[in-house]
C-alpha cells in the first residue's frame, strides 16, 4: 500500500487505510516529550491558555473525525455535544453538588447518548440530509441552552467556575487535558484497529453493500455518532474550568464548522490529521494577530487554498514529504 495518497485514493479512502498515521514508538515519544515541555517554554497565562485551547480542540477534532472520516457520516453539529458536555457537567457540580470527576463522566455520557439518539432518529438519512439534520440539532441545542434560563441562566451565563481540585494551576490543567487527548487518541486507535474499525470502514465506503454483508448499518452509525459525540462531550466537560464562565454563545452552531475545518485541513480519515489540524487552526488566528485587521481574511484565504490544493490535508502533505525523504535516502 503506497504511502503517497494519490488523488483518487485520497478521495475515497481505501478500506485498507486502517493504519493512518500511526505514530511509531519514536514518534509517540517525541510527541509526548514536546507536550510535556510546552507549558514550561510558554510561561505566561496567555500562551498557556492557548495550549489548553489547542488541547481541547484536538480532542474535539478526534471525536469528529471518528464520525466523519472513519464512519463516513457528515456531522455538522459537533458544537452541540461540546456544549452538552460543558453544561451537564457544570450544572451537576453547581446545582447538585456532584464531584467534578463523576460530573465529567456524566457529561460525557450525556453527550454520547444524545449523539446516539440523533443518529437513530436520522438513521434513514445520508449525505447532506444528515448534515443539515445535525446542524438543526445544533441550533436547537443552542436555543435550549439560551432560553431555558431557569436551568442554565441562559445569556446571563454561569460565573465563577473553577477547575477541579488540584488542577487550578494552568500548567497542571494543561497536562490533565493533554493526557485526556492522548488517552482519546490511543483509545480510538485501538478501536479502529479492531474489527469495529473494519466495520466502520465498510459502512463508510458503501452502505448498501455493507448491509448486504449483514452489517446492521443503523446500529453502527449510532455507535460511531455516540462515541464521537461522547468524545466531544469529554472536551466540553474540561472546558468550563479553563474558561471560568459558561455562556451559550460559546457553543453557537457556527462553531461546528471550526471543528470541521480542523478535521478537513488536518486530513480526514487519519488520526494524525485532526491533531495537526487542531494545532494549526488554533495557533493560526493568534499568530496572525500581528497582521491586524486583515487577519481573518488571510485565515479564510488560507483555509480555502489548503482545501483546494491539498487533498490529503496536512497529514497528506506530511506523508508525501516523509515518503520523498525516504526515497531520497534510498535512491
Amino acid at each position: 500500500m503506497s504511502d503517497v495518497p494519490s488523488p483518487v485514493a485520497a478521495a475515497s479512502l481505501p478500506a485498507a487505510e486502517c493504519r493512518p498515521g500511526w505514530p511509531g514508538r519514536a514518534g509517540a515519544a517525541a510527541t509526548l516529550g514536546i507536550v510535556a515541555i510546552l507549558p514550561l517554554v510558554l510561561r505566561d497565562s496567555y500562551g498557556r491558555g492557548l495550549l489548553i485551547a489547542g488541547a481541547l480542540n484536538v480532542i474535539q477534532a478526534l471525536g469528529l473525525d471518528l464520525i466523519l472520516g472513519f464512519a463516513g457520516q457528515l456531522d455538522l453539529g459537533a458544537a452541540a455535544f461540546y456544549g452538552i458536555g460543558a453544561y451537564v457537567s457544570t450544572l451537576l457540580v453547581m446545582l447538585a453538588g456532584v464531584g467534578f470527576w463523576p460530573a465529567l463522566a456524566l457529561g460525557t455520557l450525556a453527550a454520547g447518548v444524545m449523539g446516539g439518539v440523533l443518529a437513530l432518529l436520522t438513521v434513514r438519512l445520508r449525505g447532506h440530509y444528515l448534515a443539515i439534520a445535525s446542524l438543526g440539532f445544533a441550533v436547537i441545542t443552542y436555543q435550549v441552552l439560551l432560553n431555558w434560563i431557569s436551568l442554565t441562566q441562559g445569556p446571563l451565563g454561569l460565573y465563577g467556575i473553577t477547575p477541579p481540585a488540584g488542577f487550578t494551576d494552568p500548567v497542571r490543567l494543561f497536562y490533565l487535558i493533554a493526557a485526556c487527548a492522548v488517552l482519546v487518541f490511543a483509545a480510538l486507535r485501538a478501536l479502529l484497529a479492531s474489527p469495529v474499525g473494519a466495520t466502520l470502514a465498510a459502512l463508510r465506503e458503501d452502505e448498501i453493500s455493507a448491509a448486504s454483508l449483514g452489517i446492521d448499518c443503523r446500529r453502527w452509525k449510532a455507535f460511531a455518532f455516540a462515541v464521537g459525540s461522547a468524545v466531544a462531550g469529554l472536551a466540553g466537560g474540561l472546558y468550563p474550568g479553563f474558561a471560568g464562565t459558561l455562556v451559550p454563545d460559546a457553543f453557537a452552531p457556527a462553531d461546528s464548522f471550526g471543528v470541521l475545518a480542523m478535521v478537513i485541513v488536518g486530513g480526514i480519515g487519519t488520526l494524525r490529521g485532526p491533531v495537526l489540524g487542531a494545532v494549526v487552526l488554533t495557533l493560526a488566528p493568534e499568530l496572525l494577530r500581528g497582521i491586524g485587521d486583515a487577519r481573518m481574511i488571510v485565515y479564510g484565504l488560507a483555509l480555502t487554498l489548503v482545501v483546494l490544493f491539498m487533498p490529503g490535508g496536512l497529514d497528506g502533505a506530511w506523508r508525501m514529504a516523509a515518503a520523498r525523504l525516504r526515497r531520497n535516502q534510498a535512491g
Binding site: Y46, G47, V247
Partner: peptide, 14 residues
C-alpha cells in the same frame, strides 16, 4: 463576549 474577552484580558495582562 466572555471567552474572547478573557483571552484578550490575558494577552493584555501578560
Amino acid at each position: 463576549s466572555p471567552l474572547p474577552a478573557t483571552q484578550a484580558a490575558r494577552r493584555l495582562l501578560d
